[in-house]
């Protein structure tokens, strides 16, 4: 991990109707860092990463990703930027009318039109192998388990060789063993593909396993940031129940 910033967020506000979700968020992501964003459901964690990839527009504030202001660039520039930012969705968002192979080919053939069929196959097999699911290549998403779907979703983002990975609740709805496998996969991806990542979760086991740094979203702001121990070594009544539920219960 070095000190070069790949994502810089300053004074970010976002509301939905009368509900203020983000109230002045400041956050940096350094190169080759795994940053875990923690917070209760509905605190705006997913909103934050959707703003980072330009799926949502902020009401106020600056979001700089790989040196580009996301809300100031043209749609064409945004598409080019998205090639460098992988997004793994909470529910995987696999295209259910396509096989696993077609799901993986889809972003690749549309963004690198000069590739031969052989090169495309090679790339698909390489990333599927990286997530340990080469045997599912011809299956439909409906035939996969929850954990397999997550892995294929991650493989689909990796195929474009992104510099930044955004994981939205990667372990949500999975059994503990599969959660461990996904945690290991996130670490493997960072090592093998040299990515910087933001991992959105409320699973502290995941946070502890993958996070170089943890940021806790409380009342629309990052109130606590640091290592896992620094964040949870506190008497803050908003933080303590989080830790107690995950590790004491």
């Amino acid at each position: 991990m070095d000190q070069e910033k790949v994502i810089e967020i300053k004074g970010l506000y976002k509301s939905f109707g009368t509900y203020d979700v983000l109230k002045g968020v400041d956050l940096d992501l350094h190169k080759r860092e795994n940053l875990v964003v923690l917070g209760k459901s509905g605190t705006g964690k997913s909103v934050l990463i959707k703003i980072i990839v330009g799926l949502l527009t902020p009401d106020q504030g600056a979001v700089k990703v790989l040196g580009q202001m996301v809300d100031k660039i043209s749609y064409k520039e945004l598409l080019a930027l998205r090639l460098k930012v992988g997004f793994s969705f909470q529910n995987s968002a696999l295209y259910d009318s396509m096989t696993v192979r077609q799901n993986l080919e889809f972003p690749l053939v549309r963004n690198q039109r000069n590739l031969t069929k052989g090169e495309v196959n090679q790339a698909v097999e390489r990333v599927l192998d990286a997530v340990g699911l080469l045997q599912t290549i011809n299956q439909m998403p409906s035939e996969l388990s929850g954990g397999q779907r997550k892995r294929v979703g991650i493989a689909r983002t990796l195929i474009l060789q992104p510099e930044v990975m955004l994981y939205d609740e990667p372990t949500a709805g999975l059994d503990p063993i599969t959660c461990l496998e996904i945690n290991n996969l996130i670490n493997e991806v960072q090592e093998r593909f040299h990515t910087s990542s933001i991992v959105i979760t409320h699973d502290l086991t995941c946070a502890k396993a993958v996070g170089n740094r943890v940021a806790m979203l409380l009342d629309g702001k990052f109130e606590r940031q640091g290592t896992f121990d620094e964040v949870f070594n506190t008497d803050d009544e908003r933080v303590k129940p989080f830790y107690e539920y995950n590790f004491i219960q």
């Binding site: 330009g54 799926l55 963004n111």
Partner: peptide, 21 residues
């Protein structure tokens, strides 16, 4: 169904124009 299961968003973030496709 693609919209509510975030498949359209998935196309957007993989640098594909979902409107065109």
């Amino acid at each position: 169904s693609m919209r509510v299961t975030e498949q359209i968003d998935a196309m957007e973030v993989s640098a594909t124009n979902p409107f065109k496709f």
